[in-house]
Nucleic acid binder design. Sequence first.
DNA 1: CTAAGTGCAAATCATTTGCAACCAG
DNA 2: CTGGTTGCAAATGATTTGCACTTAG
Lengths: 140, 140
Amino acid sequence: MGRKARVSTTIVALMQAGERHAWTLEALQAGLAARGEPADFSSIFRATEKLAAERTIRKMLLEDGRARYELADSHHDHLHCTTCDALIPVPCVIRAGASAALEAEIGVAIDEHQLVFSGLCPKCRGDEAPRRRGRSPARK
Amino acid sequence: MGRKARVSTTIVALMQAGERHAWTLEALQAGLAARGEPADFSSIFRATEKLAAERTIRKMLLEDGRARYELADSHHDHLHCTTCDALIPVPCVIRAGASAALEAEIGVAIDEHQLVFSGLCPKCRGDEAPRRRGRSPARK
DNA sequence: CTAAGTGCAAATCATTTGCAACCAG
DNA sequence: CTGGTTGCAAATGATTTGCACTTAG
């Protein structure tokens, strides 16, 4: 678990740097290259699989069919911007009582959840929808 | 919009019959065949894309990387059983106020959400986890 | 007739996997 | 040495797309 794997180590370092919130394998490859640590796609893939298995990072699948990875530190949910495709973190709004209620009412056993809102991130909301002073969205 | 497309029509009929809750393309193909309306995978694929585009049905991606389709009538969330892989519907636990709060606090614009709980469905919970009378899970 | 719907085959896409060369311990 | 890592190439699995043929209207 020490300081051996070059790829794994750099991936975690990249994520901890926090320049970005959720990474696709492609983004990770670009990020590693930018750090002067280029690696093969399969190596990155295997490194993320291992990191996810040991719960260091978390793997998520989005509607666009591509996996995103993020540090598995604090729990939170996400907003997937339908305009710029960014995945931004938002605080979890699932109250503990809610899942407990489901377990009792429906008889299921809940382990975890994944909640993804779809909409506009702060930036795109401002750009694309200046609702307030009514302006047509530049037609089309 | 009438009664033209054989495949689309049968897909909706199948879903409305409600023998199943979420369908994979493969399940749909099997279902159509069972109804004496066999169709090609690509035809089913294109039919679901169209139905989803016109909001008649909803398309979802699960962790296993395969799309599931369901009627887009009432909103609800899901529980993905980690044992039998079933996707069962559960009432939505996201209160309207929760998303409104996020929009105000974070500056996002929320359109919709997809929430999937992971755990055990009622059946598997009963089979696999008779916690009550403590028995070791038959090792491994 | 004419566009929408279909079937078949081939192309894509995003991983995944097999293997042999490498490298830290 | 020796098992964990890597890179490269080839294999997968699940769609997606191109094209020509059908068919509802």
